[in-house]
Design a protein around this nucleic acid. Structure first.
Lengths: 151, 151
DNA sequence: AAGTTATTGCAAATGAGACTCATTTGTTTT
DNA sequence: AAAACAAATGAGTCTCATTTGCAATAACTT
């Protein structure tokens, strides 16, 4: 299972950084993998308190999310109204998001051509990209239909 | 001067919305126009407290920023580490941003083709876009040179 | 196993932004 | 132009997400 691979890589990452290998850190990865691929920290905390065993406190969750982000297992994909939505990457190909401002639905898409054009732009400005985020906010087809019905 | 045009349009907007034409609101536009095209609300508050005349309180700044955003004179362009950077649009053509994570420099760019591809994606998913934001985070050429020097 | 160092949990601190409410100001009516 | 009404303002309070300090604990090192 590739989750194990991810954990092994994370372990190496931690060691090389001089960090310790703790149970909390790996349990949190499990929780993220078990639940949804898009989540907010508050969700994580809720899932964790649902589970019986004491996995980690809120502070640890925050600290671990930061670590996992540096490591590259998760990334911030949506920033809207002081909320941050993370995504568990786990080998998924890169993609961007459509966000429905009515129902909150998130649609993933990938346009290779957009990625290429971004590369081009970076070259033009002699800029070394580390990561990027494209969010398109709007109304999804379901919500639009519902709106139209109510006329 | 096009700033006047903007103000006139904003005035119409306010009237049509049943809002009042107040000095604060127009003074805040002046401040934004006078200082930088990219700013955070805290900057605005600082600039305002620097000026002698009492222009507006922190609350009014927050409220006016919201209004100007609805109106379309400014937009949220960068969301990074719980900070929100706004941009004064004032008739500028649409563009996206490269953000240096080292020095904070912001480079604007426009790639018409990227916009077109986004339109395409939205059509595919039958999604009605309202707005979008593309942020590319990385290291600018200046910061990279500095890094290289220190070797 | 003892010693060192990072991590954890808790509680308290922080910071952006929204909210409350008494007072002021802009607008409309008479 | 004064009165009447509604919206805007300022100052402070409140909320909520996130960060931090610290004492206790767990993970590595030798």
């Amino acid at each position: 299972m590739q989750l194990e691979t991810l954990k092994n890589q994370f372990e190496s990452y931690l060691k090389q950084k001089g960090c310790k290998i703790t149970k909390s850190r790996f349990d949190i990865i499990d929780i993220i993998a078990r639940y949804s691929s898009h989540f907010e920290i508050e969700d994580l905390v809720n899932w964790i308190t649902q589970e019986d065993k004491k996995i980690a406190s809120r502070s640890t969750v925050y600290r671990t999310v930061k670590l996992l982000q540096e490591f590259g297992a998760i990334r911030e994909v949506i920033k809207l109204n002081n909320r941050t939505i993370y995504e568990f990457i786990a080998g998924k190909p890169h993609h961007e998001h459509l966000v429905c401002i009515e129902c909150g639905k998130i649609i993933e898409f990938n346009k290779e051509k957009i990625e290429e054009l971004q590369e081009e732009v970076c070259k033009e400005y002699n800029f070394s990209p580390v990561n990027h985020r494209l969010e398109i906010f709007g109304i999804c087809s379901d919500c639009r239909s519902k709106r139209d019905e109510n006329r």
